[in-house]
């Protein structure tokens, strides 16, 4: 019998969690029983592997489990990092509004580095063309209204390196 699945308030990963992270970051095995295969490799019980992954989902250490699409290969070739200068006192509310837009894949607050870098809110926008990205950026600007103290869109022109995150097991 398996123990009940319980949420943990502590998001920290213990050494066993970290081994599961290390063993799955390149993907789950494409075999009928992937968690069993994983458990065998790690010397664990399949139920433990699944339970720990459920818990990591609940604590947010795992954002999601599923197919990770290669947007570029699927035709989503325009990738725009939109960056916004939002008043500090409004940036968190602005972030929640922009992050709530369904077409924004990532939305983060980051520090300004004046004078070189005045922007404190980042929102990633993808599209099949730059025109599509530009339309979406205009929608973000409309949502921000007066809080948009200046923005820019940095299109990626070349992916020079992209690997899964690596972490020691």
């Amino acid at each position: 019998m398996s123990a009940p699945l319980t949420a943990s308030a502590d998001p920290a990963l213990d050494p066993l969690d970290r081994r599961i992270v290390a063993a799955t970051q390149a993907g789950l095995p494409l075999t009928a029983r992937p968690y069993h295969a994983l458990a065998e490799r790690l010397g664990l019980q399949p139920g433990d592997v699944m339970r720990r992954m459920v818990r990591m989902l609940e604590t947010g250490a795992i954002r999601r489990i599923g197919a990770v699409p290669n947007h570029y290969a699927l035709g989503w070739t325009a990738n725009g990092m939109s960056v916004w200068d939002v008043p500090d006192k409004h940036v968190d509310e602005a972030g929640r509004m922009v992050g709530g837009l369904e077409f924004v894949s990532h939305c983060y607050r980051r520090p300004r580095r004046l004078p070189q870098w005045p922007y404190n809110l980042f929102a990633m926008v993808h599209g099949r063309s730059r025109a599509e990205v530009a339309d979406k950026v205009a929608r973000i600007a409309a949502v921000l209204g007066d809080w948009d103290g200046g923005h820019d869109v940095l299109y990626s022109t070349k992916i020079l390196k992209k690997t899964g995150l690596r972490i020691a097991g």
């Binding site: 998001p11 990963l13 970290r18 992270v21 799955t24 970051q25 390149a26 993907g27 789950l28 494409l30 992954m53 990591m56 947010g60 250490a61 795992i62 954002r63 999601r64 489990i65 599923g66 197919a67 990770v68 699409p69 290669n70 899964g164 995150l165 972490i167």
Partner: peptide, 13 residues
């Protein structure tokens, strides 16, 4: 697709 599997929150791991 690049893989089937977990996507980890980078600031935690």
């Amino acid at each position: 697709i690049t893989r089937i599997g977990p996507v980890f929150a980078p600031h935690r791991a």
